[in-house]
Design a protein around this nucleic acid. Structure first.
Lengths: 152, 152
DNA sequence: GATGAAAAATCTGTGAC
DNA sequence: GTCACAGATTTTTCATC
């Protein structure tokens, strides 16, 4: 029931238009409003639907620089991974942290107002993180697609 | 007014707890409910606040494989970039597309049910995209942090 | 032009069927 | 799963600064 076709349909519409009123969402999924709310609540309890996230245009707020950093850690120390993540989480300008299998261990997304600001964050907050063996940086030009109609 | 301290406060709380009732949000920002709603609406019109996005636990829905692909394009053709993006957008399993300055031109995030499924998507949908010069793949282990308390 | 308070319109979730 | 209603919530109005 939690992952059947009807529930997937709810998630699909939820994904496409997240701030639709419940009644509208229900109609598009072919359900009554109450039923839809009940299913969504079940999915939330099961951790399938994890709520919503605000999308903010950082450039409009003066954060025009976004940099993607790929970090390779010094794996000679067993706690390197956890310690690095723990410290990286504390940096407000780090907006995303993803971990990987392979040569690269972690990817960080960093937000900054301009290049001078980025340089400052990089020197004082990033390079002081523990256990870094190597860093590669890419400057982001644009976010083209972010989860519109994923496979459900 | 659109980017003053009060508006930033609204966004800050919006970001931390996106599905808070308007009355609560207003109280935390030190405003009346109506005032808060009007400011948020203004910010939406100005494109500063771009609404909300549903967060879905893909692993719970059977999509346990997430791969990050870095693509370098064949820049000998001037339309390469646009044509590549246009085709990549059409693939439902591609959940994110970001573009960059530098050696790597595009990063794609790909969702798949398992390794066999990923292999199929990779061969039939990704490698058939136009103007690819080089691809590097990393398998994602976890998304640790996604926009909690960013600098506002 | 922006604000707070309160009324009006709308929406959500619970319970009966 | 649907329907309807009570309670909560958003949105508009209006007087005020």
């Amino acid at each position: 029931m939690l992952t059947d076709e009807i529930s997937r349909r709810i998630l699909r519409h939820m994904q496409a238009e997240p701030d639709l009123p419940m009644a509208e969402l229900a109609q598009r999924a072919g359900l009554a409003a109450g039923t839809c709310a009940r299913r969504l609540e079940k999915m939330r309890e099961a951790g399938i639907y994890q709520g919503v996230q605000a999308i903010i245009n950082w450039a409009a707020l003066g954060y025009s620089v976004e940099v993607s950093l790929r970090v390779t850690l010094d794996k000679t120390q067993s706690r390197a991974f956890d310690e690095f993540i723990e410290e990286a989480r504390k940096i407000p300008e780090v907006s995303e942290i993803h971990t990987f299998l392979g040569r690269v261990d972690v990817r960080l997304a960093v937000l900054a107002r301009d290049m001078a600001h980025y340089q400052e964050i990089y020197k004082t907050r990033i390079l002081t993180l523990p256990h870094i063996a190597d860093i590669e940086a890419l400057m982001q030009v644009a976010a083209i697609k972010m989860s519109e109609d994923l496979p459900l």
